[in-house]
Simulated scan of single mutants.
Amino acid sequence: MDVVINLFVGLHIIGIAALLGGFMTQMKAMGAGTARFVPAMLHGALTMLVTGVALVGLNQAEGHHVNTIKIGIKMAVLVVILALVYVKRDEETVAKPLFGAVGALTVANIFIAVLWT
């Protein structure tokens, strides 16, 4: 079961990399006011959601302690990110504050995952 959990952790990291990488590729465009949510950002957020839910289930099935408050906060932040990216995915440009908020929430989600023990 540890192999399966580690596989999902790897996929979860790939999801966060796609979301953050999509944001980073649009940073220059954000400065010019032409940033948009690229498909990698939506797919990364969806991958994070699916693999995160699977990780919680797998860890609970193994009898590991799961910090439900931390997971709930991370999921709430991810749902906000996912909603913003999904709703604005077809727009040619996204407002700087909205685009910046998605980047800030993504980084916040990473720090919650890493620093909250």
Score class of each variant (00 low, 15 high):
Glu91Thr: 14
Met41Trp: 07
Gly63Lys: 07
Gly72Phe: 02
Glu91Leu: 13
Gly22Lys: 04
Val66Phe: 09
Gln26Ser: 01
Phe8Cys: 02
Val85Asp: 04
Tyr86Pro: 03
Ala101Trp: 08
Phe8Arg: 02
Gly63Asn: 02
Gln60Ile: 05
Ile69Val: 15
Thr68Gly: 03
Met24Gly: 12
Gly100Gln: 10
Ala54Thr: 13
Leu46Ile: 10
Ile13Ser: 10
Asn59Lys: 15
Met75Asn: 14
Met24Arg: 11
Val50Ser: 06
Glu62Tyr: 14
Ala40Trp: 13
Ala45Met: 04
Thr34Ser: 07
Asn59Tyr: 03
Ile81Gly: 05
Ala29Pro: 02
Met27Glu: 13
Val102Glu: 03
Gly57Val: 03
Gly22Ser: 00
Leu19Asp: 06
Arg36Glu: 11
Ala61His: 11
Tyr86Asn: 12
Gly22Thr: 01
Gly33Leu: 02
Asn109Met: 04
Val50Glu: 05
Arg36Met: 10
Lys88Glu: 13
Leu20Ala: 10
Val4Met: 13
Ala40Thr: 14
Asn59Met: 13
Ala35Asn: 02
Lys88Pro: 07
Lys74Ile: 05
Ala95Gln: 13
Val53Asp: 09
Leu42Asp: 01
Ile13Tyr: 13
Thr51Phe: 05
Glu91Phe: 05
Ala40Asp: 12
Asn67His: 11
Ala45Leu: 04
Ala18Arg: 02
Ala101Arg: 08
Gly33Thr: 01
Gly21Cys: 00
Ala32Val: 06
Gly22Val: 04
Ala61Arg: 11
Pro39Tyr: 07
Val107Gln: 04
Lys70Tyr: 00
His43Thr: 11
Gly103Trp: 06
Val77Cys: 04
Lys28Gln: 15
Ala18Met: 15
Gly63Glu: 06
Val9His: 14
His65Met: 12
Glu62Ala: 15
Ala95Pro: 07
Gly57Asp: 03
Ala45His: 07
Leu78Cys: 00
Val4Ala: 14
Asn59Pro: 10
His12Ile: 07
Leu11Ser: 06
Ile13Pro: 08
Ala83Phe: 11
Ala35Glu: 04
Met41His: 03
Ala29Phe: 06
Asn109Leu: 00
Ala95Val: 07
Phe99Leu: 04
Met27Ile: 15
Leu105Gln: 00
Val53Glu: 10
Met75Leu: 15
Lys88Leu: 15
Gly44Phe: 05
Leu82Val: 01
Gln60Cys: 05
Val9Gln: 12
Leu49Ala: 12
Pro97Trp: 09
Met24Ile: 15
Thr34Arg: 11
His65Asn: 10
Glu91Trp: 10
Val56Gln: 10
Met41Asp: 01
Ala18Asp: 04
Ile14Gly: 06
Phe23Pro: 01
Leu82Met: 05
Ala104Asp: 08
Val87Glu: 13
Lys96Ile: 08
